[in-house]
Design a binder for these strands. Structure first.
Lengths: 262, 262
DNA sequence: CCCAATTTGTTCGTATGTATA
DNA sequence: TTATACATACGAACAAATTGG
């Protein structure tokens, strides 16, 4: 019996697999994934968790360090440790990378970035084709939801997003709820379906604008456009969203910052 | 007087700016930047460094942790801590991201990747134009070296690289040395000019192939190609290389993995 | 406005485990 | 086997931020 009440944690086995701080990390991750602690929730204090797990405070901190580094948790000095919420600028722009053309004149990292204006042009249900099934690791023919969004910057359409998710994973997803979401799409995934997008794999290529792209983005058929195929991943690198972004790069760029390990 | 001889480190001030482990980190970084410890060199042991700096071993380890995370240092248990050398696969592919088309069928991260065959088609000296000057943060008209490379995968040309560096920064760079480099270009920067590329900023866009691109890559004029503008950065985000990669994405993709903080 | 309690952040030191030569 | 170096684990003390009284 702990005086502070045990916060849903089980004492770690004396000799589990790997270092102790990784066992502690897995235990915390399990609690977040299970929804026992939801996004925005405060975790028990470090000393309380360490006590419940039966590890030292330093070991527990090392476990939390890793989860903070992967954006699963957020620490605030004097307040506590929280399950990360993905609804602010930082997370929006972590996956939205289109900017006005500007050849390295300004400090790209410091410039004020404009929020895209999002317009949903289609919301349909259907069955996964081969490419969608491969990307989402489901079977061809499985139920999927497809959303087509048009993103505009400064009032001009720049990006067409075709978003595909598995119906199985996103059970209660309705068009109404999708259109009226208060924050970003990834925030909706998190709050409504308990799915946290941690990373994404992307493949980019140049293609000629087809009829539909030309119509939605207002460019001439055959003009070069940038096509970005993205698979968004959650815990365990499980794919949860397949998105094809078609970008008119006539006066905008697709921006990325490479660093650190892959 | 230390019994082990001081390895070029000065004792930290009692109340410098910021946390002690960041001061220690800056001190180590300074030593690497200055060339006092060259790529591949082993640093003194953690306890020796901690002793020389007058900090505890835990604090020193936290400083090293950060530098390891940024690929400045590499730790090897039982051997020591070394200044990172940028000549292996990991670093080559950290900045080379072109792969055969494959719509997320395989596990992209685990697949064997093919080395590009590099062919230098031009090596010229000239004066920086406005775009080059802005990217390299030099003055228009300053001396630059331009290199044009053709990269082939499976014998087919896929990428045209136009590389521009400041003549001031790369003093002794000769065509002969460049062509006969034993490893990657970034490894040459490091070994011959003491410049370590840590990160890169990129901007991608789709364009129509021009005459020169069509000739070098063997595509029809007007075909959509992917143009990636990259500025490679060293310590302090100082730009050291401006590179325009023109990629034939007819059967290849430009790949990236997004995660963590920007 | 200040004080006290709580929580994370930093620093210290020690002991032990594991990999390398 | 021994010595060295990094890796893990523990615990203590104090600093800094936050909150509520």
């Amino acid at each position: 019996m702990n005086a502070t009440s045990t916060p849903g944690l089980k004492r770690l086995a004396p000799s589990g697999p790997g270092p102790l701080y990784r066992q502690a990390r897995r235990e915390l991750q399990r609690l977040v994934e299970s929804g026992r602690y939801a996004p925005g929730d405060a975790l028990p204090s470090e000393s309380a968790i360490a006590g419940a797990l039966g590890v030292s405070i330093g070991t527990l901190r090392k476990a939390v360090d890793e989860l903070v580094h992967e954006h699963v948790l957020v620490r605030r000095q004097g307040k506590g440790t929280f399950v990360a919420v993905h609804n602010d600028d930082r997370f929006l722009f972590q996956f939205f990378h289109v900017e006005p053309r500007d050849d390295f004149n300004g400090e790209a990292e410091l410039r004020e970035r404009e929020y895209p204006q999002v317009e949903c042009v289609a919301f349909t249900r259907g069955r996964a084709d081969d490419a969608e099934a491969a990307a989402l690791r489901i079977r061809p023919g499985d139920a999927v939801v497809r959303v087509d969004n048009r993103l505009s910057l400064s009032g001009r359409p720049v990006v067409h997003d075709r978003i595909v998710v598995a119906g199985m994973t996103f059970k209660g997803l309705s068009e109404k709820r999708f259109r009226e979401r208060p924050s970003t799409i990834y925030n909706l995934y998190q709050t409504d379906h308990g799915i946290t997008v941690l990373r994404a794999r992307e493949r980019a290529r140049a293609t000629a604008a087809g009829r539909e792209t030309a119509r939605i983005l207002g460019v001439a058929i055959g003009r070069p456009v940038l096509e970005v195929h993205r698979v968004a991943l959650t815990f365990g690198d499980k794919p949860v969203e397949y998105r094809i972004s078609t970008i008119n790069t006539a006066s905008h760029d697709y921006v990325s910052l490479l660093s650190k390990r892959a």
